[in-house]
Computed example of a mutant assay.
Amino acid sequence: MFVVARGDRLAVERLRRLGDVVEAAMPRRAGEPLGRTLPRWPLALVDSLRLPRCRVFVSTGSNHSVLPALVSRLRGALLLNLESIDRFTVPAKAVRILRPFSAATLVHWPEQRRLYPDAVVTGPVYEPPRYKPRDEGYVLVTAGTMGFRGLFDAVERLGLRRVVLQTGRVDPEPYQKRNPGWIVFDFDPDFHRWLAGASIVVTQFPGSTAATAALAYRKPVVMVVNPGLPLAASIADAVYYAQRLRAILLPRASPSLLRRGLDLAEKLEPPSYPNGGETIARIAVSLAEGRHRL
């Protein structure tokens, strides 16, 4: 069973192929003032109380996971607490909250043990590939569910002919009208086919798309810091993350920096790591069957 934020249809479509998907309210969205979130916390609690029981609950570092994880723990589930893949210098708040209630804290990278000396290093957890990688000659530009208008505008000013642009909650229509040769959409449940065919992937930091592109599909990646996500990982985290993914990191979205970043990315060889998701699955199954204690 996967628990996703209510209304995140992209996550629902991606995960329903792997198992049951349950939606629960997200109490706080990225960059949102705490006061504005207060009406949603009771709804998030009600949704969490309605979740099916489980033996092991794996939390993945988002604030959305806090209430479902705590409710599941109170019902007797064992909690595995996974830090975000892009956190290296400051722990995620959700992970700090859940740590006292967890059977184990899990991290993707050895460097993250500086945050949690007793953590289990699983290796990076990323979505496995669904298609064989190929090069169809386009630049894929994506910024997740929320979108990143500043990045999209900067890419548009480059005058690129072959672009696939995923806009999220940013209106795709103006970009399509101004660039009739581009492929532009807000969401696509089969997003992996665009990852598989890209020559280069341009995406935002923070976010997990960079890891999927680099590790699952071995694509050159350009990451651009999104100033609209102030509660997420820091610039220092971005530097570590880019080094691990062998990605080009840009501090802001500007046409000149993007042009240089694309030129540099063409020369990069993406890294190769075993998927840590398999390690977590083995730990979870072993705990559920009572064969292992952490």
Rank of each mutant, 00 (worst) to 15 (best):
D8W: 03
L10A: 14
L10T: 05
L10F: 08
R16K: 15
R16V: 09
A24L: 00
A30T: 05
P33F: 09
A44C: 05
S48M: 04
R50N: 08
R55P: 02
S59D: 05
S62R: 10
H64K: 01
L67W: 11
V71D: 09
V71T: 11
N81V: 02
S84I: 01
R87M: 05
V90I: 12
A92K: 01
K93N: 01
K93R: 15
K93D: 09
A94G: 06
V95Q: 06
F101N: 09
A104L: 04
H108I: 00
V120S: 00
Y126C: 11
P128Y: 06
P129L: 04
R130C: 07
K132A: 14
P133V: 12
V139S: 09
T142S: 12
T142Y: 01
A143R: 04
G144Y: 10
T145P: 00
F148L: 10
R149E: 15
G159H: 13
L160G: 12
L165P: 01
P172T: 10
Q176I: 01
Q176D: 02
P180Y: 10
G181M: 12
F187P: 00
R193N: 05
W194F: 15
A198E: 03
A198F: 04
I200Q: 07
T203W: 14
Q204S: 13
G207N: 11
T212F: 00
Y217I: 03
V225G: 01
G228N: 13
G228S: 13
L231Y: 11
A233G: 02
Q243N: 13
Q243K: 15
R244K: 15
L249S: 11
L249Q: 10
L250K: 02
P255W: 03
P255N: 08
L258P: 13
L262V: 08
A265E: 14
E266I: 14
E269I: 14
P270S: 09
S272D: 14
G276A: 07
E278C: 05
E278L: 12
E278K: 12
T279G: 00
R282W: 10
A284W: 04
S286N: 12
S286Q: 09
A288N: 04
H292P: 00
